[in-house]
Design a protein around this nucleic acid. Structure first.
Lengths: 191, 191, 191, 191
DNA sequence: CATGAATGAGTCTTCATTCAT
DNA sequence: TATGAATGAAGACTCATTCAT
């Protein structure tokens, strides 16, 4: 996607794009503004990306990857599945809540025709570790006997919708709110 | 004296907008194309809506209302909560799956800055019957002791994400897939 | 120009047009607004005028005629030329100052290509009585031996410019201001 | 690095706008046409001006300044007031007559709501040298004891109206016509 | 390789005029 | 004759992309 040279500039462009989306919404994500915010000349964006579409795709994948890595970073192999699932889920919940721009960006483009099939495929692939984790748990009879992908989608969708509800209504979720949400989530998949 | 405002045109415009979103994505939702698809002159749209933004808001609310009414139409007061919940959920699942344009339209704009606060508020209000239903069930000790709104958001989000997964991967959900999804959903909220 | 029927409606349209020009400037002189302000249906304007251009031309001529008649109404044949000139000039000055909309309307369109040659010609013809008056005075050796038309144009232009200056700078002209202006004017043409 | 802003384009735009006003009247002063006439892309105008309104304001001020400078260029400090006044006036008369587009442009917009208060203010300021000149002459008892601004407005208005009369009736003013006009003008202000 | 001026197709919206009722 | 909904040709302005420097 993005050429390797000057990775810092690419990140500056990513940050600029997110910042702008936060401040003015998606409609003002113009190349000129992104460039300006990133302290780069308009034309220079095209050194790093073929065009706007490619930039969006790259940013999308970047955010997905970043989030997944952050989640997986809390994984502790020596702990039980439940402990790990709780930790991973909590990380996901908090990340989504604390970086709403990134979450909205992902949400906004996940089902947009701007995303290329290839991007979609790569994004899917990022879920593999999670699927493997669930599959193991299924083998251990800890989870319902339902395709792991369906479970994951349900968990993600349900959790995000609740996060968005909190954000949209400007509610700061308390410990017990988060606990409630986890309870719902865990009940939904546990055997 | 003069021609009366032909309110059916509003629905023609709605249909046209949805059709276009399905065929070419959201970026081609131009007023000119919507008008053309609806068999109406460009300028005539402005007889029925103040502008693009108002049209989007109106369509959004229309779709939300339509969906909610379709759901509630299957409600049978004499039946148990579980039976009704299953029916309502199934209707929601199938509607989303069978009319993906409408679902995507709603999803796409739910968190867009184009939606006015007023539209958002009215959309919220549409959930009231469902919330009441859940609250009653909570009183009967059928559901977890968790705020009804959180449960609803989780149910909706989880279900939609699974539907979108099916659509995105061009999977036709079989009876047992739907059953699995319901199982997840029901487990998530039942006591 | 305007068909005879329902002269009151024509005047309502004239008034509406002037009112709108005063309130929102020339750019918002739309047929729809004029009609609304006049309490008439948009389409009905075309019963009275062939189109916008004709309406403007008619209004222009109407205003010119009205102003000239108001001026001439103060003419007193038994009085001297100077007395009459002063009276006529004063009327012109005050009319322009007290009905700035009408003055601006005339000014705005006098050299606009919207005015038809015919309108221009008829407007010229309205000056005849004044020209005759000046010509007589020239014969009596009261005025410079310069073409009357040139003198009239100079008088009108000079006076209007001063009026516009007062209006533009929100100055209420005092007796002596008006006297000064008349002094300038009279010196300019008297022998 | 990149192309530098080609400031000559601003003048090409000015010329194009004037040309169009001359050829087709003010209503065809569309940005697209101005750009085309100037040999520039439509969008490029917006590199030099924020919008149509700003362009008009800038052109207006440019024309006013240009005219004033041309006038003042004939001023000869060593000559008497009358000689200088005659020269300045003549320059004004001829400039107006020889460049009717520019004169009409100025006239057309002087009382238009398109002009910003700031533009109006700056235009006013351009008159200062003339006012000073008249004030000195008043001190020398050469002119009537009347506010200089009133005298200037009267002179300008009267003169322009005569010029417009010549142009409108396609009369080529002869030496004696011009002399007559000056005579009127000078009589109007001299003591 | 960086820059940002230049491009022009495309966008929303307006409005004089027409025409069905 | 009166009405005002319908029309669709402009109009001002935007913005992804190109390209001269």
């Amino acid at each position: 996607m993005a050429r390797k040279k000057d990775l810092s500039k690419i990140h500056r462009l990513y940050d600029a794009a997110l910042q702008l989306v936060q401040e003015h919404g998606f409609h003002s994500l113009t190349m000129a503004q992104v460039a300006k915010q990133a302290g780069i000349a308009t034309g220079s964006i095209y050194t790093y990306f073929q065009g706007k579409e490619e930039m969006i795709n790259a940013l999308y994948l970047h955010l997905k990857l970043e989030k997944m890595q952050a989640m997986l970073s809390v994984y502790q192999p020596e702990e039980s599945f439940l402990v790990n699932f709780r930790q991973l889920w909590l990380k996901y919940f908090l990340l989504s809540y604390q970086e709403p721009d990134k979450m909205h960006f992902i949400e906004q483009y996940t089902y947009s025709p701007l995303l290329s099939p290839q991007t979609r495929q790569e994004a899917d692939r990022l879920l593999t570790p999670l699927i493997n984790l669930l599959e193991s748990a299924k083998q251990e009879q800890l989870l319902k006997d339902i395709p792991a992908t369906i479970m994951i989608q349900h968990v993600i969708g349900g959790t995000l919708e609740v996060v968005k509800y909190f954000l949209n209504h400007e509610i700061t979720p308390q410990k017990n709110d988060i606990e409630s949400c986890f309870e719902i989530t865990w009940s939904s998949i546990k055997k």
